[in-house]
Amino acid sequence: MSASSDGRIERRFARLKNEGRAGLITFTMMGDPDIETSFDILKGLPAAGADLIEIGSPFTDPMADGPVIQVAGQRALKAGISLKKTLELVRRFRALDQDTPLVLMGYYNPIYVYGVPRFIKDALEAGLDGLIVVDLPPEEDEELCLPAIEAGLRFIRLATPTTDDRRLPAVLAHTTGFVYYVSITGITGAKGAAVSAISDAIARLRRHTKLPLAVGFGIKTPEDAASVARSADAAVVGSALVSAIAGSLDGSGKATVKTAPAVHDLVRRLAAGVRAARKEVVR
């Protein structure tokens, strides 16, 4: 792969390593509950303590998502978001923040219909750093993964409890940036995995890769995030933040003055949990 090994994602994980702590990765859906509010949420995330940011790009048929993120996607689509408009939000974010890595998470069809070469070019120009595409396993690497890596985007792969040692090398072969470990066999927003199971999985993954390891699915509270942050390089929180958005809306589903602060407050608490995690262990 010709991709440079020093992008925003690598620099950010290097910094976290220097600071001796794990990172917090947040997920919110672009366009939820409306395009401008989702941008207000996005631009406040670094100050609230997000180390890396996953931005969701909605799809009508999100087969790996639980009800919370499904409904967020429907709100976003109703608000008129598109992949093109999502990239515009990325561009606006980059004008304010040149350091925080942005990773787009979504499903393949909107990218396929946008046109893969054009999407890669536009995404890089907008300042996007990486992609997580739920329905592109290694068996379909030629579709997007290989050309994206070639162009300089990171392609972050999901590893799951069903990804056994036999299969793991294939999954990791073309993974760049970091590895996203899905801690449960299930959908987003489901009940979390036991801490011991996560640390065992992290240990297993570390035998196969030197890439940073992020853990997600089922992490809802600062305590959950802290327990993951003891062994992983980053904790990913999505559904809990999306629920905070949902809980702040008015009766007709519109944003209120509480919407962005609700997300940022939770991010601050999650970040505090993550940052304290390893200090507690030392103590």
């Binding site: 329905d135 396993p137 792969r157 069903t162 990804t163 899905v182």
Partner: peptide, 12 residues
């Protein structure tokens, strides 16, 4: 055709 599924399902 192809196999456009989440990693969790791929081994299955």
């Amino acid at each position: 055709g192809g196999r456009f599924v989440a990693e969790t399902l791929m081994p299955l």
